[in-house]
Amino acid sequence: MKPLINILLLLTLLAACATATHEKGMLYTDFPETKELSASTQVLYTALFRYPFRIRVQGDRAVVMDLHGQETFFHLFHYPDFSYLSSFGKLGDSPEEMLSAENIRWNGQSLWTLDANKSELTRFGFDSSGDSLLRQETVGLDKDILRALDFVTYGDSTFIIPDYSGDSRFCWVNREGKLLRKMGKIPSSNEDALKNARPALAQAWRSFIDYNPENGVLAAVTQLGEILEIYNLQDSTHVVRIGPHGEPKFQVSQGYGIPTGIMGFSDVQVTDSAVYAVFHGRSFKEIAQNARRGIHVDGGKYIYVFSLTGEPLRRYVLDHHVCGISVNEREGIILATDVNKDEPIIKYKMK
């Protein structure tokens, strides 16, 4: 009986530790359904990309964002045949050019882009032919907003931007770029970092976000670790889901958070019925070992699907490593970007 007692005691201690560590969120350990998906490659008749990181589709137009674009950051295609139309967002430091590109968002017939290095949001609109997107408006962000790395549009007059000061979770910003208010807190159980190293903690908790105005759901997934947050802006509820890899792990060095755990999520989309997120799950140790062997693969091989209240629904296992996704539930397809391939736009059928 003694070994059994010891085992029960150990399990009790582990359960207590888990509760203490994750008291601010609800754990998930697995998904009730797992499906393997095989991609078809979208043939492109032009070589444009260095690092196609994001893909956004609206109607019969698709825009692909090249994170490391040599001349331009964005490329416009006709959808669904992906015939090339034009490129925009010229790289450069003049007032009409961009130094970096972090994300893109459709808002009606306009496309908003974020330049972190210039701390600017820019709105592009279609020309009369619908084959080009032209710069129409630039919004300089308030100096109190610390290096914006992602954003969503909230209506026609507000942006929501993750807060990397560590003081809150999100900044609400008006159409003129002025900070209106801050919302939420980093849901970490690391009390020491919350008290003494909030900027480093905020860096480690860097998150990719998405918002769906139809259901009022704002989702955030961490680039490190395995954390999903869901904010319902209609009823003011907040759900935190913690996966098996737990919170982002990091060490503080000269005020900066140095990652030590895993690469987590790289994109998220809130549809009308679910939350889809690209998950990597590889440790930095594994990534470094692969690099020493000459293996350089970027992206995640999983798409996790959660309900709008954070319940795990489904895990898709992919045959490619992908970074960005565009989900069309009505057609049952997921478009994705694979930065490792010469033909980087691929398509998965969910049904």
Rank of each mutant, 00 (worst) to 15 (best):
S283V: 02
G299T: 02
A291H: 09
H280G: 03
A274K: 12
T271H: 00
G299D: 00
T271P: 02
I303A: 04
R314N: 15
V275P: 03
Q289R: 10
P312L: 02
T309L: 10
G294L: 07
K285R: 12
P312E: 08
N290P: 01
S273T: 15
L308E: 06
S273K: 13
V297H: 02
L313R: 14
R282D: 12
F279T: 01
Y276E: 06
L313W: 03
L308Q: 08
R292A: 10
V275S: 08
N290W: 03
A277V: 07
F284V: 06
E311W: 00
T309G: 07
A288F: 10
G281W: 04
E311V: 14
I295C: 06
Q289D: 13
R282C: 08
V305E: 11
Y304H: 15
I287S: 03
T309Q: 14
G310K: 07
H296E: 11
V275E: 01
N290D: 15
T271S: 15
E286V: 14
V278G: 13
G299V: 01
Y304V: 09
A288D: 08
L308S: 04
I287L: 15
H296W: 07
F279P: 01
G300F: 04
A277G: 13
V305A: 06
R315T: 14
T271C: 05
F279G: 00
Y304R: 15
K301V: 08
V278S: 12
R314Y: 15
G294Q: 07
V305Q: 11
R293P: 07
T271F: 00
R292V: 12
H280A: 12
G300M: 05
D298V: 13
S283C: 05
I287E: 03
A291W: 03
L313Y: 05
L313H: 09
A288M: 09
S273Y: 05
P312K: 06
F284T: 00
S283K: 02
E286W: 07
